[in-house]
Structures are given as C-alpha cells and as structure tokens.
C-alpha cells in the first residue's frame, strides 16, 4: 500500500524567546525539529508499511530549509520525500495550507500511486490548530479519522480499516473505508531510532522539490495570503496584571515561618478558602 505522511518543520518551542522590547519572536539560532506529534504519525505509517508492504512518502510544505525535516524522516525509514515550496505559499492559513497539501497529495498519487492512507499528527506545536488534517480529508474526500490511538486491522482487499479513536470520555471503535485520513494521537507508539541503513539512504536520497506548478496548482488565488480567509491583525504580548504580585522575600528566613506567612496571606485574600481546604483535606 501507499501511505503519505504530512509533516511540518517547527521551531523547537522550548527555545523560543520573545524580544522584551519589541515583542517579536527571536528566531535567530532557534533550532528546528519535526513537529513532535508528526513522529507518531510517521512511526505508525512505517509500521503499517512493514506489516502490509508498500511505500511511505513524506510530504511537507515550507521554506527550502524544511528539507532538513524531510531528510530526518528519510532517516527514520520513509521511502520518498517531497518538499512543496514556493513563495506563493507564504502566509498560508490552515485553509490555504490544506488546499496546497491536498493538491500535492493528488499529484503524489498520480505520480507514485494513489495513497491508501494519509497521515498527519494530531496538531502542530507552533500553530496548535488541529485543522489541517480535517481540511485535507474534506478536500480529497477521504474518510476523516482524527485522534486515532490504534489501528487494529486493515483489509486491503476489501478496502476496510478499523481504528480506535479517542473521544471525550472514552474510545470509539470505528470501521471505515480506505482511502482515509488519520490524525495520530501522541504517545500511541514508540518512535523508532532510524537504522544505519536508513541513515545512509537518507544521505544519498534526493528530496523532490516541487513548486506550486509542479504540484499541479493552477489557481494561485487559493494559496498563501490571498487564499487565506483569516488575517492576523495584531500580535502582542499580554500585559501584566495592573496590580503586581505581592511578593514575599524568602531570603534568610525560617521555612516554617515563611510557610505560615504564605498561608496567612492566602487566607486573607480568600477567607472562604479555609473552609474549602479544611473540608477537602478530610480523609
């Protein structure tokens, strides 16, 4: 079977700093990683390939440097990598992104065989929207299976798939049809370490670099800023509370006194809390 995995290169969020004066993101020197949620999707795709045979194509849309993420994915064992990169994609929101990716997936299908499954991560750590996966499913008319925790079985001949899907308060057992789009839940598998063989393969592989035209996109008004219904009007840092926190300086103080002082301060501000806490602490 043929599986397409959509991944995104994101800044390592633990290292993002905001400029204290200008309130802009200081991107310089921030390392990039494959969106961590996408690794679970990639791992699941590789496992399915190892079980059922076939190929895994990884796809990303991004600037030329996103090739690094694809090369890493090849190092985990993906068979083929496609980088969708074009200045027309700059400023895409989730609707424009799902349009470009769905066109590219269709082109991947024409070129290398129609995919049976398209995977994405649950969401990205920089945008956190969880909207691109459903967007791709809708545009390509794929069955939409989000928050999938497990794929107990696939019947390729019948074109059927069974999945366990996390929902509020429990897990749904679903039976659906291929082709489908799966957004994979985090922590549901153990991401492999790539083998030496895969590392060598990654090093000598060609990452396919597609422009909008290469991906068969002729309507550029649906891409990038022009194709995005949402507009970011303002980016800002939240203002501090007008009233600063009342600070207790602990330097050279006895911990016991300090704890009593803090509790007194808590109960002064919230007198009703004493009853609440006393009630709660009852064994």
């Amino acid at each position: 079977m043929h599986i397409v995995v959509c991944i995104k290169q994101v800044p390592d969020s633990a290292q993002i700093r905001v400029h204290p004066v200008t309130n802009t993101i200081m991107r310089q020197g921030v390392p990039t990683i494959i969106n961590p949620y996408d690794l679970f999707a990639l791992e699941e795709a590789l496992r399915l390939r190892d079980t059922y045979g076939g190929e895994v194509t990884v796809l990303t849309m991004g600037p030329p440097m996103a090739e690094d993420a694809l090369r890493k994915a090849l190092g985990y064992g993906a068979d083929r990598a496609v980088l969708l990169t074009d200045r027309y994609f700059a400023g895409s929101d989730t609707l424009a992104t799902s349009y470009a990716l769905s066109q590219a997936i269709a082109k991947v299908g024409e070129t290398f065989g129609t995919p049976d499954i398209v995977f994405t991560g649950k969401q990205t750590i920089d945008g956190d929207t969880a909207q691109v996966g459903p967007g791709i499913a809708k545009r390509l008319d794929l069955m939409q299976l989000t928050y999938v925790a497990k794929i107990p079985s696939i019947d390729l001949a019948a074109g059927e798939i069974k999945v366990e899907r996390r929902c509020e308060g429990g897990t749904q057992m679903l039976q659906s049809r291929l082709p489908c789009l799966i957004t994979m839940l985090e922590g549901t598998n153990e991401v492999r370490r790539g083998s030496l063989e895969d590392a060598l393969y990654a090093a000598r592989s060609q990452v396919l670099r597609w422009s909008a035209a290469d991906a068969g996109i002729d309507d550029l008004t649906r891409c990038g800023l022009r194709g995005s219904p949402t507009v970011v009007k303002r980016v800002f840092a939240p203002t501090a509370r007008a009233e600063k926190a009342a600070l207790i300086d602990a330097a050279e103080r006895n911990l016991r006194d300090l704890a009593d002082e803090l509790i007194a301060a808590i109960l002064t501000r919230g007198p009703a809390l004493e009853q609440e806490l006393a009630f709660n602490s009852g064994e």
Partner: peptide, 22 residues
Amino acid sequence: TTLGRDLAGSVATTLKTGLTAD
C-alpha cells in the same frame, strides 16, 4: 474538544471560510 475540533475543521473547509482555533 475532540468532537468540536473534528467537526469545526470539516465544516470550515466545506464552507471555505476561516476558523480560528482555541
């Protein structure tokens, strides 16, 4: 929620309109 996000993404794409999450 998981339900709301699953539904909102499909509805917005079907209607081709903007959706702002969270």
